[in-house]
Structure formats: structure tokens, C-alpha cells
Design a protein around this nucleic acid. Sequence first.
RNA 1: GAGCCGCUAGCUCAGUAGGUAGAGCAUCUGACUUUUAAUCAGAGGGUCGGGGGUUCGAUCCCCCCGCGGCUCACCA
Length: 487
Amino acid sequence: MSDEQQGLKRSKLEKLQTEYMIDPFPPRSHESLSIKEVRDGRETEENVLVTGRITGKREHGKTVFVDLRDSTGSIQLYLSRNVLDEKTWSVVGLLDLGDIIQVNGSVFTTRLGELTVKCADLTILCKSLRQLPVVKVDSEGVAHDEVTDSDYLYRHRCVDLIINPDSLDRFRKRSRIISSLRSYLDSNDFLEVETPVLQSIYGGAAAEPFKTHYSSMNETYFLRIAKELYLKRLLVGGIDRVYELGKDFRNEGIDRTHSPEFTQLEMYEAYADYNVMMTRFEEMVITAAGVSGIGSDLEYQGTLIHLSPPFRRIGFLESLSKASGEDLFSWEPEDLETLCRKNDIATLAKDRITLLDKLFDFYVADRIEQPTFVVDYPEAMSPLAKGKPGSPGVTERFEAFVLGLELANAFSEQNNPILQRQILEEQAEASVHREGSVDEDFLYALETGMPPAGGMGIGIDRLVMLLTGTSKIRDTILFPNLRRQNK
RNA sequence: GAGCCGCUAGCUCAGUAGGUAGAGCAUCUGACUUUUAAUCAGAGGGUCGGGGGUUCGAUCCCCCCGCGGCUCACCA
């Protein structure tokens, strides 16, 4: 904002204070009705009190129309020189878009059918010193001069929420989705817990961690990349149904579906397996869709999605063989690389497993539209999952996809401490770059004895994307990570 | 991390085939006692993302940097 604009706002502020002896930032307001309550009450001769932010102002000489908005809606105010006393009328002239005011008056309907508060009195509750971008909506509901600078909106989410009702609505839905998941889990006897975010040994997923330094211990700590290894300790401890909903941190690239700081729900259920987790997932998604006001059919990125259980199930190995027409699993890495190149799949990977995963994304995952469980992943891709009886080299694991978006990852949890130790030690050995080491305390827990269990992680931001029709994960996160701006 | 594109008034955008810039909305002044993208008349507002180079002269051409968007890599 220019100095001139700032100066104007300041001089209005001073005028209010010195000329009219008004405190532009009073400590409190009177209890008032929400705008929705006023609208529901229709016309009334009785005085109502309303508070809100000014989002529009239309002057007509001795009359001014103002649009007032609170979190429940918007209503028009009618301010007339004939109704207000002289001082208040002067104050009306100093009102700006963005100011927060309280008014009281009767409610009537204008000639054009707009429900309106005929103000008898007005109090400024907060004078805005910044100029809000103005978005006007015409009679056809088309927004004009909508702010398109997403950087500006991410950096000033407060402005975004004020000027973009859709944005506010999306975050309301996010909140409702999360509380519906909590109440589903709570009503199914899952216990919500909190486990460490700062960890001296990280694990539970294959990802690059954020590092930090713990001064008083003089040791390197990591922000968790997953909650898995701690929640399993709780299964050992006798909390048979447990979950944690919170942030994980992964020091990887940012794109449309990845955020370095993201919200993940992890849940573990003793005496269950990955089949139970599939049912849980179906139920939770349906529940969440219900509260976000969508129902079981929704449009996502131009495709109609049917959330009707049971979701389709396809085998990882079978679907890849079928889609590619080859039994790729017997192939050497060099041949897999050649196939990748032939299909324009760019990757730096050289190992069989990563290449297979790449090819799987290309042939299968990217083409999935309707909700689908991809089941039974190769052992080498799933170090914490239990093997599938009768299928050597295959684990009881699934990932849930909708329109190419991975929403959940679940398995029948590995509870054999000897096998688990072997896998974790091999993994630690193989990964030269990783600073992580084997989590001995986790293995101590497994050796103590963990009941057979099913576990699942659900990407909450992505679920919100799906249920709100949002294409960018950043639009589901109130304050997404941005590069620091010099200024 | 790589490639491409972008950055001009508070917001949305135009523009100059190199001669330091315009519109709409917002703001300010005036008119208007039921308007709603209110309307009408007038005004102010920009070191054209930052730095360097070429040039008599750069917002425009070249180079570097910053920030963003989109693709890709890493990854969930």
C-alpha cells in the first residue's frame, strides 16, 4: 500500500479520535445477533444489534448503503442522515471497506427486495488501516477483479478469507471433515494420543527428514516423518485401538499434492488386519463426505466420483502385469529402465523396486479414477507390513487411490520381532545417506509382544482436496510453507 | 534440483517494434433521501520485482539475482 493510502487511513483515525472523541478500537462490543439470525428473523420493528466487517459501500447523498459480513453471512445496512444524529452521520463518512462496526436498528425490505437493517446507531469496533482488494459480484453472480495473485493470498490468508468466501468455506469443510473422522474413531473406541514430533531417531516411512539441533542435549533431532513406530509401542502397551491426527514433516519437494508439513491420521487396531482397514477407510470417507455436504457422488477435476462401497480392489502385481502385458517382476533393472525410457518416464532410480513403482504409477495408478484399493504390494516396498500367507514376497498392504491421488496406505502390521529387526537392519545398512539408525526401543517393544493388528495412514490434506474439489494441496492448508520474502 | 512462463497503480489488466506509462475497480473532492458491479463530474496515485550491461537514452534488448506459477525430478 502506498504511503498516501496509509496516510489517509491514519488521518481518518485521528479525526475520529480528536474531532469526535471516538475510540476506534474499543475494548468490547455489546452482545448482538449473528447476521444469519437477523436474516432468519425477517422484517421486524424491534431493534436488533449486529456486528461485522464492511465489505461494500454505496453512497447516495443523504443515504448510504453498506454491506456487512460476519462469519454467518452478509446483510445490507441502510444509513440515513434523517435517522442518525449529526455526529454519527459524520462518522459514516469516515467508514472504509474493512472496518468492523456494530449497528442497531429495525429490519425492513427495500424496494428491490433486499433485507436491510435501518440503522439507528453505529459504533466503530475496529478501524482498518489497510486497503482490501475489492471483488465485486454482479447480478449474475460473476465476480469481477478477483484477486489472482495466489502468492499474495497465501502470504496474507486473512485477506483471502475476507475476500474469497469459497476459501473460507473450504476451511470450514476441512474442520468438519476432521471432526467427523475423530468422532468416527472415538465412537469406535479408538483412543486419541500424542506422540513425539521431535525425535532422535526417525522412522516409519522412507523420506528425508527435517533436522534440528537440541541445544541443551547438544544432539541432532529430527521432525517426525511418521507416527507409526510410536503408535505401535502403544499397541504393545495395551491400547488396542489408537490413533493420532497431526502433522508429519518431510524434507522433499513441494508440488500440487505434496506439502513439506502435512496432516496425517494414523490409526492402529489390534486383532484386525488390512481387510478391516479397507472397511474402516470406506466408512470414514463416506462419513466425511456426508459432513462436507457432498454426499456419495462428487465431481473432482471434471470427473464424477462415486463413493459407494465396496471400493474396487486390484492386485498390485496382477494389475501391473495386465496393464503392461508383461510379467515385469522377473525383469532385470536394466530392462525396466529401458521400458521406462520407452514410455517417457523420467527417473533417476536404478533399483528394481523403485522402477517397478514408477511403472506401476504409469500403467495403473495414474489411470485410476474411481476409489480403488491397490492390494498386496511386494515385500521389498513394504518393510513394516506382514507377509501374505501363501504368497511369498508379497505383503498384506494396500494403498487407496482416487483419480490418481493416493489417499491412504495401510497394512497388516509386522509383529514378528525377528523378521522386523532383520529388515530394519538391512535397510539401515543399505541406506548410506540416511542418518537414521535402527530404532532399538521400537524393536524392544515388538520383542515384548505386539498383537496382530491392522494400521492405516490417511493423508488428511488430500482427503480434503478430494471432498472440496480442490486441485492444489496448498489450498487446503491455511498457512502453506512459502519461501521467505525479502522486504 | 532442472526447464518453461510471469512480475507494470491497493486489485484486475493494457502498453511502449528502446524516447521514463494507461484503463476499470478501489482511494480523494463534489452531486444524488431505497441503491446493490449504484450512477454522474473531477482529482491524486507508479524509481514498470532488485542489481548490472548495451545505448545519447531501458519498463521494453542482454546477463545475474529474488519471488511466484506450471511441468519434471525426489517423495505420500
